[in-house]
C-alpha cells in the first residue's frame, strides 16, 4: 500500500494517519513478513560476565 507523502502526513490530519496505520496493520496481518524485529527491553544480565569497565 503506498503511504501518504510527507505533505499528506502533515496536512492530512488524524483521519489520514488512522487510515494509513490501519492499512499497514491489515497488510501486516495478511501475509507473514520475511523478518520480524521486536524492539524490547532486556535484563541487564544479557551482558556476559566478562563485560567490565574497559
Amino acid at each position: 500500500m503506498p503511504g501518504p507523502s510527507r505533505r499528506e502526513f502533515l496536512l492530512g490530519g488524524a483521519a489520514s494517519l488512522a487510515a494509513f496505520a490501519a492499512g499497514s496493520f491489515a497488510a501486516g496481518q495478511a501475509q507473514a513478513a520475511d523478518h520480524a524485529l521486536t524492539l524490547a527491553g532486556l535484563d541487564h544480565r544479557i551482558l556476559p560476565e566478562t563485560l567490565t569497565r574497559g
Binding site: H35, A36, L37
Partner: peptide, 20 residues
Amino acid sequence: PVLRFKQGVKTTIDVTNALQ
C-alpha cells in the same frame, strides 16, 4: 540479530515496538 537480505529481492520486515 544480523539481518540478511538478497540484492534486488523484495523483503518485508514487521517491526513491533515492545518498548514503553
